[in-house]
C-alpha cells in the first residue's frame, strides 16, 4: 500500500475517536438536562460543572483529531 494512502486511511480511522467524544458530551448534557428538569432550582449551580465535564470529554476527542492531523501533516 502506498504510504500516503495509509496515512489518509489512518487519519480517517483516528477521527472515529471523535464520535466517542460526541457520545460523552451528549451523555453529560442529556443527564444534566434530565436532572435540571427534575430540580430546576439546583440546575443553575451545576451548569459550570456540566460545562467542565463536557470540556474534559471533548478534550479526549480532540486528542484523536490531533492524532489525525499528525498523521496527515507530520508523520
Amino acid at each position: 500500500m502506498d504510504a500516503e494512502a495509509a496515512k489518509m486511511i489512518g487519519a480517517g480511522i483516528a477521527c472515529i475517536g471523535m464520535g466517542g467524544a460526541g457520545i460523552g458530551v451528549g451523555t453529560i448534557f442529556g443527564n444534566f438536562l434530565s436532572g435540571a428538569l427534575r430540580n430546576p432550582s439546583a440546575a443553575q449551580g451545576q451548569f459550570t460543572n456540566a460545562l467542565i465535564g463536557a470540556a474534559l470529554a471533548e478534550g479526549l476527542g480532540i486528542f484523536s483529531l490531533v492524532v489525525a492531523l499528525l498523521l496527515l501533516f507530520v508523520v
Binding site: A55, L56, E58, G59, L60, I62, F63, L65, V66, L69
Partner: peptide, 13 residues
C-alpha cells in the same frame, strides 16, 4: 497536554 490541546483543537477544527 489536555488543556492546550483542547483549546488548540477546538479553534483549529
Amino acid at each position: 497536554v489536555s488543556l492546550s490541546l483542547r483549546l488548540f483543537g477546538n479553534m483549529l477544527a
